[in-house]
Amino acid sequence: MEETVPDLRARLRAGIAAGLRTSLQILKITLPLYVAVDLLKRTPVIDVLGGIFAPAMGLFGLPGAAAFAFIAAFLLNLYAAIAILVPLHLDAFQVTQCGLMMGIAHNLVVEGGVLRSTGARGGFLTLCRIGISAAAGLALHAVHRLAA
């Protein structure tokens, strides 16, 4: 476990460098996705495809088009999901709902692999995440409807 601790300057530099590297990755994902969704919104594509998912998304109080953000969250990461969500102009509850559900279940391929490498049951845990995410979403929607 022992590793040499670099001095403060080196850590600061390493931290900023890591932050910028992460930012670049985020830019590469969010820019094209946001632009694509914002432009597609001017066509019927989003509405028609979103309509397919509307019944399922409705269970959580979300519009059908939010399904695209869920697909992006599951396969890629939360930044991809956010790039799709923002042009959809959801209300505060819907953003919270997405944040809760996607916070629990996202980046499933990569993170499932990491969990497996620790020796835990990665595949089963990934199924648990999707289940827990859905349960949390149903519960929050129920509470929101009662409060409204």
Partner: peptide, 29 residues
């Protein structure tokens, strides 16, 4: 329309970068 989309995307990306860089730096420290 392309311009508006690009502007919105840049705004969002800017916000995210403003969160990520300090956060990652803090973790490293």
């Amino acid at each position: 329309a392309v311009g508006i989309a690009l502007l919105g995307a840049m705004k969002l990306a800017g916000k995210l970068v403003l969160i990520i860089v300090p956060l990652v730096t803090l973790f490293e420290l």
